[in-house]
Design a protein around this nucleic acid. Structure first.
Length: 500
DNA sequence: ATGTCC
């Protein structure tokens, strides 16, 4: 941890109610900061230091710091980094294509209000979707088996019609994905087949791959979760809510998960490979930070990273699609006849090639969400062309989570918003400061049930920033508007397993 | 984030 006292207070230059510049040395354009004065004042020293280092790194043309930003590895979590010439693994994040999904169910809130029903749903979901590091189909009594043969298709095709059919996932859900599939560096799936072939050439490596594939349809640990919600549509946003398929006063299910062990393996492999090259060639690391390795586009190193990122992203996409199918299956077991439809699936840890200031660049979003408003060229021909696409932001079980939609002002932040509340305390600080009983009792008082006998203390609502202040920042900055608030009725988290 | 360090 960086000592707060040895850092200069950052000299933000306010440009609006919730926007500011953060100047950087060397005459480069400043970092764009989204956040009310309260949010800006709460940004930790490591976050500021990493944001400046990111801005000063080779080939970087823009950095946006979102209100949920905090220190991470290399680049802050909660930042956007744009480069037309380079690709950076650090500013994508370790959990490649960590994402949010929202499943709308056609039952009114009353259907899941009584405790026995909620408990039955928690059990039914856990029988199908295990949680935690290393967990996968071996722990699922009613999961779906994914072998290495299907796994190959999952990571090279993503949520293709064939893969979704094979897994029993409604094929129309692919239209509700930010990117239903990812291709390799040369825009083909063939590049991914070749890369996977190389990565799994040895028997031992192939076994590791097969093992990771068995995690498909499972939640991770840490901040990953599944949460049953009641939808509260903003009265002024009924039209957009209808386009999204949101139903006021009805039950929905919000999920946060990523590419699991497979994505971590790929990201880790890329860090190591690039770090070795930097050492071998004596290239200086930006700010001496080994998580800020990078490669110029067109090089073998950049191509390999882009292929690995796509292989990880495809797993993450199908993982979420399968989780939603399994969750729907669980709901149907407990509440026969209930129907569900995917509202949206959107990532907050990925690099995408997008038009920024009229030219193509790689937009790295690390704990940041794409935010294309109505009429954005990339939405043409899709279901969200005229409304803008849904933005899914997890807050906390007590204050709720949010469905937002981008406004024209999002151009300022390279068409991006935050990815949630953002941590206010480190995990260790949370464990030291917060009281376990208080955390559990506050959830109980709010009538929020969980699968954990003890809620993971480092995931307590108080370990996160004030979600309402974060949403206020986004709204006041003119980036997006809230369409609906989601209020938790039960939460599934990794921790304190009764079956261990 | 990750069976959590080479």
């Amino acid at each position: 941890m960086t000592n707060m006292n040895d850092q200069a207070i950052p000299n933000f230059i306010p440009t609006g109610e919730a926007t500011a510049w953060l100047p950087v040395p060397g005459g480069l354009p400043p970092i764009k900061v989204i956040g009310t004065p309260t949010i800006r004042g709460g940004l930790d020293a490591m976050c500021i230091k990493q944001a400046i280092n990111t801005r000063l790194s080779p080939g970087v043309t823009e950095v946006v710091l979102n209100p949920d930003a905090h220190g991470g590895y290399g680049a802050p979590i909660g930042c956007v980094m744009v480069s037309p010439s380079h690709i950076y693994p650090g500013p994508v994040g370790v959990d490649i294509k960590c994402s949010m999904s929202l499943l709308q169910l056609d039952a009114p809130a009353d259907a899941v209000i009584d405790k026995p029903t909620r408990r039955a749903l928690i059990d039914a979901i856990l029988e199908r979707t295990p949680t935690g590091p290393g967990r996968g189909q071996r722990q699922a009594k009613k999961g779906r088996y994914v072998d290495a043969t299907l796994g190959r298709r999952v990571v090279t095709e993503g949520a293709s019609e064939g893969v979704l059919r094979e897994l029993g996932v409604p094929t129309e859900w692919a239209l509700r994905c930010e990117d239903s599939h990812h291709v390799g560096h040369d825009e083909t799936a063939d590049a991914l087949h070749k890369r996977l072939e190389l990565l799994t050439r040895e028997a031992r490596q192939y076994q590791v791959f097969a093992d990771k594939m068995r995690q498909l349809g499972s939640y991770g640990g840490g901040n990953h979760f599944g949460e049953c919600e009641v939808v509260q549509v903003e009265p002024t946003q009924r039209e957009r809510a209808a386009v999204f398929g949101l139903r006021d006063g009805h039950v929905a299910f919000l999920s946060h998960c990523g590419s699991r062990g497979w994505g971590a393996l790929l990201a880790d492999g890329q860090f190591k490979a690039m770090q070795q090259k930097f050492a071998k060639w004596g290239i200086p690391l930006p700010g001496g930070d080994r998580h800020m390795v990078h490669a110029p586009l067109g090089t073998q190193e950049a191509n390999d990273y882009l292929d690995d990122m796509a292989l990880g992203a495809n797993f993450a996409t199908v993982n979420h699609m399968l989780i939603n199918a399994l969750v729907l299956d669980a709901f149907q077991e407990v509440l026969p006849g209930i129907k569900g439809s995917l509202v949206y699936f959107i990532s907050h840890n990925i690099a995408r090639r997008e038009v920024v200031n009229k030219s193509l660049a790689w937009v790295h979003r690390k704990g940041a969400t794409r935010a294309f408003p109505a009429g954005h060229h990339a939405l043409a021909g899709g279901p969200f062309e005229k409304a803008g696409h849904p933005i899914l932001l997890p807050g906390n079980p007590k204050d709720g989570s949010s469905v937002m939609v981008a406004e024209e002002g999002a151009k300022f932040s390279c068409y991006s918003v935050n990815h949630g509340a953002g941590r206010a305390m480190s995990r260790t600080a949370a464990s030291k400061t917060l009281n376990q009983r208080e955390v559990d009792e506050s959830l109980l008082r709010a009538d929020i049930m969980t699968n954990c006998r003890q809620y993971p203390i480092d995931e307590a609502p108080k370990a996160y920033k004030d979600f309402n202040e974060v949403i206020k920042s986004v709204t006041q900055a003119g980036l997006a508007s809230e369409v609906a608030r989601l209020k938790a009725t039960f939460v599934i988290k990794d921790g304190d397993k009764a079956d261990d």
